[in-house]
Amino acid sequence: MKKLIVSPAPHLHGNESTKSLMRDVIIALVPSLLVSVYFFGFSAIKLALVGVATAVAVEYVIQRYIVKTKITVNDYSAALTGLLLSLNLPPNSPWWIMFIGSVVAIGIAKMTFGGVGQNLFNPALVGRVFLLVSFPVIMTDYSIPTSWFREGIDAGSGATALSIVKEGLAKGLTMDQIFTDNNFSYAEMLFSKIGGSVGEVSALALILGFVYLLIRKVIRPHIPVAIIGTVLVFSGIFWLINPAIHADPLFNVLTGGILIGSIFMATDYVTSPMSKKGMVIYGIGIGIITMLIRYWGAYPEGISFAILIMNATVPLLNMYFKPAKFGKEVKNG
């Protein structure tokens, strides 16, 4: 007699798996990676390779020899963390910075909580912030390495647009002066020659990745739209009040880590809320905290901190912002 398989309904399963979702995010990062290789050459490749290899190796070693559980490195989540972290470092970072960052990201931010799905904070961001606090000089040196494909970018772009603006404002310059002094233009921000971390250089490449993620239904647009919208509104209000000392909204969105942060970091499944209401509030929170740090904080850029702070509120958001239920309760139905 034939032995049939018996299981509870449903008897079909969708095609998505953890692996396929993580793979899609990695694919969405490919345009940014290519652009960064174009601009920074070997340095970008080196960082990405060290990041991915370290992340995977650390996860494997911990699962195999320390906690002795099922090994999950083949679900690409560790690789994704490594890649994301590499895209968040200044292009000229030495390889060992990447190595330390990956060890912290996987070893401390992910595996100590119990591996994939259990961590409270985004591992890549924990890695980045750890490095930023521990090695502030290296982490804010945005000088450009020589590329294979072209002669190095005009000398002097050793700082990000945001820090140029911040320093300029501190010196008492107006926005117009800063813009003309540094030849900023929106076209450049889109395709970017302006200094920044590896993955931030091209807004267009990031948006391409965003569109891919939306088409594949890997992420929902709520979080990025809420963050970007908040940044636009927040900076817009200040810009309208005094355009001389506040950058315009578009500049605020296109520079710094807003795009990579809102598209790839804030939307990390594990550390973002479950309901759409929660997602919107989470996004607004990130937007506001980012702008607070940008305008009044010590750092020129604040999205990493903003996301980490909002990560901590996710359990609360999940508890208080439930999805809309079908129908209403009747007593003694």
Partner: peptide, 22 residues
């Protein structure tokens, strides 16, 4: 001997509520 293969959540309670057994 088994007459069918159960392929659901590893729980006797779930299995018992589904059918008579494997």
């Amino acid at each position: 001997p088994k007459s069918n293969n159960y392929d659901g959540y590893t729980s006797c309670a779930v299995m018992a509520s589904l059918y008579a057994g494997d």
